[in-house]
Design a protein around this nucleic acid. Structure first.
Lengths: 201, 201
DNA sequence: AAAAGAGTTGACCGGTCAGTCAAGCCGTGC
DNA sequence: GCACGGCTTGACTGACCGGTCAACTCTTTT
């Protein structure tokens, strides 16, 4: 991948952070530019519209997170341990954001995706794509768990879908309640749901 | 309850519908007034701000839905049947909205609640309140199910919380994917989750 | 019939919105 | 030393934003 202009990178990162923290509708292009210390003209040199920035920012964020995800879900790690690691990572991430911004931020794709799903098709489609990519990790993890017999659930595809909904729901709830407590029970809730027979640590 | 001005009622209903369909940020006060056929001055006669309209509209919507909820969750109905009825009602509701507006709308409190959670405290608090009221229905249903032994889950409070997250997650997912299919498996997913021993019809 | 108050009207406000543009800057290739 | 193209600048546009207001009508009370 060819290296990206520093200006563009800054806009992507600042835009992503601001919108994740508040919302698509309440963050203006001016806000993003001001915070990034970049002129509006430059913004529109790199992005045809505000919506396009968001789509690119989501992709960039995902690319940046991929190594972490691959590490967490490495086939070398026992399946239940992967889930444990994921829960730890999510909690740590949400905790950090909450300290930084003063409130629980939840899942960026879900918040903005749900906000503009019926208004901006490009962002909707991108959110859907990223959410489905995440599901793949769950599917293979649960399939592995089933093969090693550490779980009572039967269909990895169905279970992964449900797991994703559950996780998503908890993150939305945490954001709306502005309370990390919801996320503290995440691991045990998930382990219960998949019928984990041993809770690996 | 004293009867409400027709104008105010219309604004509440139109505002709620428009914002549920798209989002808080993308619907303007002018949009609401135009659609309701009411002048802007009247809007601000009844509501101090756009945010206040939303808070009142949420309350009004809830009051309007309460009889349905009380009927669905009547103690006279067997617990598993209540859940079946709820799933039917949700699906029917989402289906109707989807036909009317051309896309799956999801949960109104969750969408807008998540959108403005970090920006408008009044709306955030109201969303949280309504979501917790809904949880009460789950708690008593699961408690009843446990007492009659039709379910393997043990703690009604914990199970209700998880159930709510799961339901919420599925509704968000349906909105982002703009696909009712997600909701078709809702009942079996929930029955699975609570460990229902017989699926009542 | 007068007075009062609730509801209505639409013009108006200052500010902000996403997006435009012509002009200029600056490193590279010739 | 000059021409080119990627990048930057910041003033600008016109539409639209949430919200205000003084004047008006209509209904109810006295």
């Amino acid at each position: 991948m060819k290296k990206m202009s520093e200006t563009k990178e800054k806009l992507l990162q600042v835009g992503f952070d601001l919108i994740w923290d508040s919302s698509y509708g309440s963050v203006s292009v001016d806000d993003i530019c001001k915070r990034a210390g970049i002129n509006k003209g430059s913004f529109y040199h790199f992005f045809p519209s505000k919506a396009d920035l968001v789509v690119e920012a989501y992709d960039a964020y995902w690319q940046q997170k991929r190594p972490d995800m691959d590490r967490i879900f490495s086939p070398q790690v026992p399946p239940l341990q992967r889930i444990h690691n994921l829960c730890q990572a999510i909690y740590a991430d949400q905790h950090e954001k909450a300290e930084k911004y003063g409130h629980v931020c939840g899942c960026p794709f879900a918040s903005v995706g749900s906000e503009v799903a019926t208004v901006d098709e490009k962002i909707r489609a991108k959110s859907e794509q990223l959410m489905s990519w995440k599901r793949k990790y769950f599917e293979s993890t649960i399939a592995d768990a089933i093969r090693e017999g550490s779980v009572t659930v039967k269909d990895p595809v169905v279970a992964a879908r449900t797991l994703e909904s559950l996780l998503l729901g908890m993150l939305v709830e945490a954001r709306v309640q502005n309370d990390l407590k919801v996320l503290e029970t995440m691991e045990s809730t998930i382990m219960d749901f998949i019928g984990a027979k041993t809770v690996g640590v």
